[in-house]
């Protein structure tokens, strides 16, 4: 598939937003979006981890798994790569930038179980992207996720003080807001289309 990496990057942010069209990373999306600040922290951590793990997983998949013909092990390998990368990042940040560690550190362990990260790697394999495309896809996917969680956190901060029927409070309302956001994002679909 010959797609310009920039097109993939834009598409991953707007038209095929990993959260709003593929529903990935919902768990932490719903639980963390209570505050704008923590959403921002988690969002940046996701952008960082997603960009690098998509690059590493691309290399692992094409230079180790395919030549050895053990593609069926991809799930295990990908999840190990992600967990190891998150652990490593945590150690490096702790060593070199304690300030950043305190603002970002608590979110890093959450990321290992964020399905959006694994999802990006799996989509990258299924859609047969090359290296540059994969990195663009990872970065775009992360930014798209950041955009979605920031928007939800902002809206939730406003809605907090309004009357909401019991039963719809909390998760129910967040889901409806997310649904409306997804409707809004369909408006972008004229820009670029991938898949």
């Amino acid at each position: 598939m010959e797609l310009n990496p920039f097109v993939i990057f834009i598409a991953a942010i707007f038209t095929s937003n990993i959260l709003l069209t593929n529903f990935l990373g919902m768990c932490s999306f719903l639980s963390v979006s209570k505050e704008i600040e923590s959403s921002l922290g988690l969002g940046f951590a996701v952008v960082f981890v997603m960009t690098f793990t998509s690059a590493i997983n691309y290399a692992v998949y094409h230079y180790i798994l395919v030549p050895l013909d053990i593609v069926y092990l991809q799930y295990i390998i990908f999840i190990i790569v992600i967990a190891a990368f998150v652990q490593l990042t945590e150690m490096v940040i702790e060593r070199f930038s304690p300030v950043l560690y305190y603002s970002l550190g608590i979110f890093l362990p959450l990321i290992t179980v964020n399905c959006a990260i694994l999802g990006i790697s799996l989509f990258m394999v299924i859609r047969e992207y090359n290296f540059v495309q994969s990195v663009a896809f990872g970065a775009g996917g992360g930014l798209g996720w950041l955009l979605a969680i920031l928007a939800l956190a902002g809206i939730r901060a406003k809605v907090n003080y309004k009357f909401v029927p019991t039963g719809l409070q909390g998760a129910g309302l967040s889901l409806i807001i997310t649904g409306l956001m997804a409707l809004g994002f369909i408006g972008f679909s004229g820009i670029v289309v991938i898949q």
Binding site: G167, L168, A171
Partner: peptide, 23 residues
């Protein structure tokens, strides 16, 4: 068939179960 309806459906399901049924 599109993505937004999935969010709405789940929200409605949670609403029904948590609201009227629990009440």
């Amino acid at each position: 068939v599109m993505a937004p309806s999935a969010f709405f459906m789940l929200a409605i399901l949670i609403w029904i179960i948590k609201g009227p049924l629990s009440a």
